[in-house]
Structure formats: C-alpha cells, structure tokens
C-alpha cells in the first residue's frame, strides 16, 4: 500500500527503466557471487584429488607438532608453570593448533602466479572475463575449505591423545574462531599474492621467497607464540600483518580473547586483509601494464 502511494506520481516509463536497472545490477551481483562460488568449488575439487599428499602433509605436521608441544611444555615447566599467559595445557594446545592451521592458512605459501608471470601464462588469466585476484582468492578459499579437516584433524587428534587439549566449552569462541580463521586464510593469500607479484619486476624470486617465509613464520606466532616475544620483537611483529595469520585465530578459538577484545582483533585482521588485497589489486595492474609476453 505504502509502496503504491510512493510510486504514484512517477511516470510509467521511468518506473520501468528503474526496475530494469535494479534487476540488471542485482543480476550482475548474483552472477558475480555464482562465479565466486564456482571458483571456490573448483579449488575444493582440485585439492581433493591429492589424497596421499594430504595425508603426508598431515603426518608431517603432526610429527612436528609432537616436537613443538614438548618444547613448549618443557619451557613452561622450566619457567615454573606459566609463560606469557600459557600453562602447560594451554601451551601444548597452542602448539597443536598452530600445526593444524599450517594447511588451511597455507603458511608455506604458493608460487603458481609467479610461475605464470615468468612463463607468460598470466596472459591467459588477463584475457579471462574475471578479475585474476578474485579468481585466485576464490580458488584458494576452496583449497582451504578442503584442507581444513584432513590437515587440521590429525594434529589435533594426536594432540588430544598425547598432551590433551585445553579448549573452551562454549560455542561462541568457535563461531568467532571460524570467522577469524577464514580471515587468516584470506590474509595469508593476500600476502603471498603480493610476493608472487614481485615476479613482474624480479627474475629470481627464491631469495625473496625465503625471506618472506622466515619473516612470516617467526612473526605470525607459527614457531612460538607472539605473546612470548621480548618487547622489541613483539613491537616488530605488531607492525606487520603476520600475527593475524596464526596468533589471532588461535587466541580467538582458545578464548584467550573474548567479547569486544575478540571483535577488535578480528577488526585488525579485516584492516590488514583489506589493505593487502587493495595493494595487491593496484600492484597487479601496475605489473600487467609493464608486462610483455612474447610469442604467438
């Protein structure tokens, strides 16, 4: 009724064109999300083919988790029962969760795009009617979704059996944790996207890759919780996006941070993610402009 009143004095033709425009925009948005979902599904399917590799990865993550959990527990015991807010049980849980996140967050990264830039295959990506960053991100989310259980489950299972896990009993930390992990997956993607783009300017990426790996492994809390860092190193870490990849999602899942504090660390993740994706978008365009692909 109200709507009828409102549109009463709008000419018929204008109303029709307005409706056409809105339905066209809506259709474009729906189409874009359908495409995104299709890419996510493709990423999921692509990774589900490599079952043995997945099992091998989970096994290795678990063995390293075992060593890391004992180092953590050993250090906490030596310190008299608590270090940086972790007791033996929560310290071990941290180590196992970090190992479980290696696969989904893709800590050791990917170099596909750099390889495509080097060989010129990136020309194909540029010719497609979809933004390459958008497509790569969607595929990576599909990959993360597939690896979540097979790569994350075994370390946590062994952890529960060997040292026990100290996890919260209310559902809220898990809910927020899922959001935080999803943001970590995307932030990790955005970081590696930037590194891959360096291939537009550098011939040999191996040195840069190693330096990035070292920085991200230390400063994310992958090796050891960021809360254990001496002040100077903590300051360095908090100036980088890396704690958002491992330390933040674990803090949220373990209920180390709750309520508004949890929302604020998730906000920090969102900020880094948006900044890195945008930088990646701009740098990709700059790189594509100077790209020359030979051949025919």
């Amino acid at each position: 009724m109200c709507a009828a009143h409102h549109t009463l004095d709008v000419p018929d033709s204008a109303r029709r064109s307005f409706r056409r425009r809105t339905t066209a925009t809506a259709r474009r948005v729906v189409e874009r999300w359908r495409l995104f979902a299709a890419y996510v599904a493709m990423g999921f399917r692509r990774w589900s083919t490599y079952r043995l590799a997945m099992a091998a990865g989970a096994f290795t993550n678990t063995v390293f988790g075992l060593i890391k959990a004992y180092i953590t527990v050993g250090a906490i015991g030596a310190a008299g029962g608590a270090v940086g807010g972790y007791d033996a049980a929560t310290g071990a849980t941290y180590a196992w969760l970090a190992q479980a996140l290696i696969g989904p967050v893709n800590v050791f990264g990917w170099r596909d795009l750099a390889e495509r830039i080097r060989t010129g295959d990136v020309a194909v990506d540029l010719a497609r009617p979809i933004d390459p960053q958008f497509a790569f991100l969607a595929t990576d989310l599909g990959r993360a979704a597939y690896t979540f259980i097979p790569r994350g489950g075994p370390p946590l299972l062994v952890g529960a059996l060997v040292t026990g896990l100290a996890l919260p009993s209310s559902p809220l930390p898990y809910l927020l944790g899922t959001v935080s992990i999803a943001l970590a997956v995307m932030a990790s993607f955005a970081g590696w996207w930037l590194l891959n783009l360096a291939a537009f300017w550098l011939l040999d990426l191996r040195g840069a890759t190693t330096l990035y790996l070292v920085a991200s492994n230390v400063l994310s809390g992958m090796i050891i919780p960021v809360h254990w860092f001496p002040d100077w190193l903590w300051t360095v870490a908090s100036c980088t996006p890396f704690p958002s990849l491992i330390q933040t999602p674990i803090d949220v899942v373990m209920g180390h941070v709750t309520g508004t504090e949890a929302l604020s660390v998730i906000g920090v993740q969102c900020g880094w993610l948006a900044g890195m994706l945008l930088t990646g978008q701009l740098l990709f365009r700059a790189g594509a402009r100077r790209l020359v692909v030979q051949g025919g």
Partner: peptide, 22 residues
C-alpha cells in the same frame, strides 16, 4: 642470505624461549 635467514629463524625460537626461561 636466504639460507642465513633460515638459520636465524631457527635461532630465534631458541632465543625467544630463553628470553622466558633460564
């Protein structure tokens, strides 16, 4: 330098642990 950095990474873990315990 990358290879040196990997060594530094591993030593950082030892360093951070001993920043907390004796």
């Amino acid at each position: 330098l990358g290879s040196v950095a990997i060594g530094v990474l591993e030593f950082t873990e030892v360093y951070v642990i001993f920043a907390n315990v004796e």
